[in-house]
């Protein structure tokens, strides 16, 4: 499968979040460099270390050498910990050096989309795993049997909610016949964005089943249409699809129903849908129908508050009356 120029244009559209992740990575590299330098100097000169830790206010007022001697009971960092941090420093530096390639994935024709995405996120996740190992090492809670794996691979299910907030977007090149996008639902959390650059024949609405209330979903023809998707402060998935597929945008909005969130720009004819490798035409048509149903407002939607609201408010009134009675505040 050849790379097309949509990938580079997509990366350009996603430059903001990618650069935010890369700058977090760069500052992590600097943090680890600082800790390493501190630990190395602590091993060589504890007086100098104490002097630095005490800050300039203590200069001329506290004898740092004496301070170091009297507080020798505080443990110093061992060589194994320093060596571990050196490995982490190399790992983070390597990830930082990979630039945009760290967020690019190519699924070989016939490959499993979900596995490719999971693998790429697990590789990116090593940055988070490394940060955890740094924290554990500084707190002296590192245990190789439990934590060594964090730097080899750090799968998405281990990511914390804050890590999911700073996750970089992923740009995935995939053949149309391999777009089993519904399997990607587990990765749509935090601010994780996934863009599928689809080539060849593909199902008409591969992302329809992912249009849940908090997820930005878009099937577009060109990367330039991804501005809203990029700016959205939540999870999202996009697919750049060929002409045979539907074009739609599902924008999460509080309080909105699916037909308010979903706008369809292009809808292929159902009878044009053909069977693809492992995907029956019927199944693809079902996705298309689901999309149409989500986008169609029922006639009653514009009729104002529905009948069941009234009994609910009556219930509230009854509850309030009961509370007033219980507290002897009736008639106030």
């Amino acid at each position: 499968m050849q790379s097309d120029d949509r990938v580079s244009r997509t990366l350009k559209e996603l430059a903001g979040p990618i650069s935010a992740f890369r700058s977090a990575l760069a500052s992590a590299v600097e943090d680890v460099r600082g800790i390493l330098s501190t630990w190395r100097s602590a091993q060589s000169d504890s007086g100098e270390q104490r002097r630095a830790e005490l800050g300039s206010f203590a200069a001329g007022r506290i004898d740092a050498e004496r301070f170091a001697t009297l507080l020798a009971v505080e443990e110093e960092v061992d060589a194994a910990t320093v060596a571990r941090l050196e490995t982490i420093f190399d790992l983070l530096s390597d990830l930082a050096d990979q630039k945009e390639s760290v967020v690019r994935v190519k699924v070989a024709t016939g490959g499993v989309l979900r596995d490719a995405v999971a693998g790429a996120l697990a590789r990116i996740g090593r940055a988070f795993g490394a940060a955890r190992v740094v924290g554990l090492s500084r707190a002296r809670r590192y245990e190789a049997s439990l934590h060594q794996r964090f730097v080899n691979e750090y799968p998405y299910f281990l990511w914390s909610s804050s890590e999911r907030q700073i996750a970089p977007p992923l740009v995935v090149e995939v053949a149309g016949q391999d777009v089993r996008a519904e399997a990607l639902a587990e990765f749509l959390d935090g601010r994780q964005k996934i863009v599928l650059v689809v080539s060849g024949k593909c199902p008409p609405a591969p992302l329809a089943r992912l249009a849940s209330p908090g997820v930005y979903v878009v099937q577009a023809a060109e990367p330039v249409e991804l501005a809203g998707f990029t700016a959205y402060q939540g999870p999202g998935i996009a697919a750049l699809v060929p002409e045979s597929a539907a074009l739609f945008t599902h924008v999460p909005r509080a309080e909105a129903r699916s037909w308010d969130r979903l706008k369809i720009a292009r809808l292929p004819q159902e009878d044009a849908v053909i069977r693809l490798e492992g995907m029956s035409a019927a199944w693809q048509r079902e996705c298309l129908r689901l999309l149409q149903e989500l986008a169609a407002a029922p006639p009653a939607a514009a009729a104002g508050p529905s009948a069941p609201d009234r009994p609910a408010s009556a219930q509230v009134d009854r509850l309030a009356a009961w509370l007033l009675k219980r507290t002897d505040l009736q008639g106030l």
């Binding site: 600082g34 630990w39 270390q49 630095a52 800050g55 707190a139 002296r140 809670r141």
Partner: peptide
């Protein structure tokens, strides 16, 4: 700013 100002963490070993 000197990273050594924050270097020492509570020992949780």
């Amino acid at each position: 700013l000197d990273p050594r100002w924050q270097a020492r963490q509570p020992d949780q070993g």
